[in-house]
C-alpha cells in the first residue's frame, strides 16, 4: 500500500466513522441519563429520509438538515413520552420506533416518488464539504483530513463538546446523576423525568444528524433501510466507549475503520459476502474483548 492509498484509506475511514460517531454520541447522552435509546437506528433512518425530502422540496440543504434534526428529536421525545406518560417499556418502545421508521419511510418514499427503493428521482441537495486552508494544501495529510463533509467535522468536534457538557456543566452533571442515582438527583431538586425527556430528544437529534449525513453527504439519495444497522453499531460503540464521550468517539472510529476495511477489500478477490461481514464481526469481537477486560479489571480491583 503506497502513501497515497493510505491517505485515501484514512479519508474513507473518517467518512465512514462520521455517522457512527454522531449516533454513538447521541446514545451516550441517553445512557448517561439512564434511558438507553434503542430507537437510534429508526431516528437515523427518519433523519436521512426527512433530509432528502425537505431539501428536495425547499431547495435548501440547510432546511433539510434542520428537518432531520427535528424529526430525530421528535422521535426521541416520543420515546420519552411513551415511557414516562404511557408507562411503556423503554426497550420495546425503542424497537417499535425502529420498525415504524423502517416501514414509515418506505411507505412515504413510495407515495412521494413511486419507488420503494431509492429517492433518485427527487432533486435533493447535499451539504457542503470544507477544505481546510493551509493543512489542505499539504500532500497526503491534506488528502486525508481536508475536503471532508461539514458533518464529518461536526461529528469530531461534537465529541469534546459532549465531554465538556457531561463533566463540566451543571446540566451535564445533573444528567449523570439522573442516570446513575435518580433518587439522589430528585432529592437535590432535579426533575428526573424532564432530564430524561430532553436527553432522549437530544439523542434523537444526534441520530437525525447522523441520518442526514448518510443521505446528504455520504450519498445524495435516500435508499430503503439505508442505515443498515449503523444505529446498532453505534450502540456497541457507546458500550465500548465506557461512558466517556472521547472513548465513544474512538470506539466509533475503530468500528468505522473495520467497515472501511471491508469496503476496500471488496474486489480484492475474497468473496464479497465474507468481506461484508467484517463490520458486524468486529463489534462482536470488540465487545467480547471489552467485556473480558472489564472482568479482569473487576477481578484486579477485588484482589
Amino acid at each position: 500500500m503506497d502513501a497515497s492509498s493510505v491517505a485515501e484509506f484514512v479519508a474513507v475511514a473518517l467518512r465512514v466513522s462520521t455517522p457512527l460517531t454522531l449516533a454513538a454520541l447521541g446514545v451516550l447522552i441517553s445512557t448517561r441519563a439512564g434511558v438507553l435509546n434503542i430507537g437510534i437506528e429508526g431516528m437515523m433512518l427518519a433523519g436521512a429520509f426527512a433530509g432528502v425530502v425537505v431539501s428536495a422540496f425547499t431547495g435548501s440543504a440547510l432546511l433539510g438538515l434542520a428537518a432531520a434534526i427535528l424529526i430525530g428529536a421528535a422521535l426521541g421525545a416520543l420515546l420519552a413520552t411513551a415511557v414516562h406518560v404511557a408507562k411503556a417499556d423503554l426497550i420495546l418502545s425503542g424497537i417499535a420506533i425502529n420498525i415504524a421508521a423502517a416501514a414509515g419511510t418506505t411507505l412515504l418514499l413510495f407515495l412521494i416518488t413511486g419507488s420503494k427503493g431509492v429517492s433518485s428521482s427527487l432533486p435533493s441537495k447535499t451539504l457542503p464539504t470544507i477544505d481546510i486552508p493551509l493543512l489542505g494544501d499539504l500532500p497526503l495529510v491534506g488528502m486525508a483530513v481536508s475536503g471532508h463533509h461539514i458533518l464529518t467535522y461536526t461529528a469530531f468536534l461534537a465529541a469534546p463538546l459532549v465531554a465538556l457538557f457531561l463533566t463540566r456543566t451543571p446540566v451535564g452533571i445533573r444528567l449523570r446523576a439522573v442516570g446513575e442515582k435518580p433518587e439522589a438527583a430528585a432529592a437535590a431538586g432535579v426533575n428526573v423525568r424532564r432530564y430524561q425527556f430532553w436527553a432522549l430528544a437530544a439523542s434523537g437529534a444526534f441520530g437525525g444528524v447522523a441520518g442526514a449525513f448518510l443521505s446528504m453527504g455520504y450519498v445524495s439519495w435516500f435508499g430503503q433501510n439505508m442505515t443498515a444497522g449503523r444505529g446498532f453499531i453505534a450502540l456497541a460503540a457507546e458500550v465500548m466507549g465506557g461512558g466517556s464521550a472521547l472513548g465513544t468517539m474512538l470506539s466509533a472510529v475503530v468500528l468505522g475503520t473495520a467497515e472501511t476495511i471491508s469496503i476496500t477489500m471488496q474486489g480484492g478477490g475474497l468473496p464479497s459476502e465474507l468481506v461484508q461481514t467484517v463490520p458486524y464481526i468486529v463489534p462482536i469481537l470488540a465487545l467480547l474483548v471489552h467485556a473480558m477486560r472489564r472482568r479482569r479489571i473487576a477481578r484486579k480491583s477485588a484482589a
Binding site: 452533571i173 449523570r176 446523576a177 446513575e180 442515582k181 439522589a184 438527583a185 432529592a187 437535590a188
Partner: peptide, 10 residues
C-alpha cells in the same frame, strides 16, 4: 436518609 442519596461516580 438511612439509604444514602449520593451519586457514586461523582
Amino acid at each position: 436518609h438511612q439509604h444514602f442519596t449520593l451519586v457514586p461516580s461523582l
